[in-house]
Design a protein around this nucleic acid. Sequence first.
DNA 1: CGACGATACGGAACAGCGTTCCGTTTAGCA
DNA 2: TGCTAAACGGAACGCTGTTCCGTATCGTCG
Lengths: 189, 189
Amino acid sequence: MGDETGKRVRADAQRNTDALLAAAAEVFATSGVDAPVRQITAKAGVGAGTLYRHFPQRSDLIAAVFRHEVDACADAAPALAARYEPVEALSRWLQRFAGFVGTKRGLSAALHSGDPAYESLPAYFDQRFLPVLGGLLEAAAKAGEVRSDVDPYDLLRATANLTLPGDDDGHARRMVALLVDGLRYGAEK
Amino acid sequence: MGDETGKRVRADAQRNTDALLAAAAEVFATSGVDAPVRQITAKAGVGAGTLYRHFPQRSDLIAAVFRHEVDACADAAPALAARYEPVEALSRWLQRFAGFVGTKRGLSAALHSGDPAYESLPAYFDQRFLPVLGGLLEAAAKAGEVRSDVDPYDLLRATANLTLPGDDDGHARRMVALLVDGLRYGAEK
DNA sequence: CGACGATACGGAACAGCGTTCCGTTTAGCA
DNA sequence: TGCTAAACGGAACGCTGTTCCGTATCGTCG
């Protein structure tokens, strides 16, 4: 859905919204979603008033960051699919996805807080990721490089769960690689 | 377990500890367990330093209040058993217990927070309440006023769950009464 | 019974937070 | 180029938890 809701957006407003999203993403990843507001505004090079104009509720900002990162991760797929062969593209995207999930520690508490701003997030997660992974998986299967009896939903959830523990960063990488090797196992060729 | 751990406690210290427990219980019931510290100290007529000396961590105070109220509720049973006939005593105590549970809204979040100060609370809950309810139930069953095939554990949990909804205060009362009528249903006499 | 040491008290003071408000700047259009 | 509406930034406010230390009180011992 575009931003064509009536009025035009001023360029600086757009710039600051983007800066806030980027800064918040970084801060949330390091200090959790309860991080001080000033830390975010400082990193974005923006006043407190600006933050509150764009995101009146803290949950608005959190939800927006989440959506933004979901989009970034999902949108990375086409480029990978164009540049690499199917199974390599699949593998690289799963690594990318694992990295995304790794930054979402502490967000699950917010998700279960009952705040209506979060209600649509899980659905958005599935809606964006399932088609992407489904496409990569199908391409790799068609090329005969991976088996074709794996449900995208299962693979998505498995990868997400793989990165839940303490994660030394290297650990998640290796586990995802192992998962991909599992996909190759029953391949046609 | 008593307070016989070594030294003697000064009288004013004991008085203030009690005042803080009483004030905190009231404030927690009205404003939740995240209520401002000053609200508690003010109601207790005590300085902030006094609170922090007796309860260095907020979780210490919450746990102490919880234990204190569990004790108060459990200790109310003997008097009821002495003053009323068995089934009436049972009914009145269940009402009392329902009232106790009703003030514990918002505490469940704290319980599941992983703070080690709360770990022992569920066990304490069962350890104090199960014998009490068991005793009242057995007495009523022996008098032939209620059936004898009801597990105290089930009844305790059921009563607690009954008071979970919006509770107009009257609602919980009526539901508990209904539960007691259910107990009478298969009585011997 | 009076004095003394230990213990506990209270609240001012501090640091940090979210949020608001408004004088100033800037973007975009005529 | 000038004008207006929109957006900006950060000082200021009120509220928070927590610490600190001069003062008051308790309980004991001579």
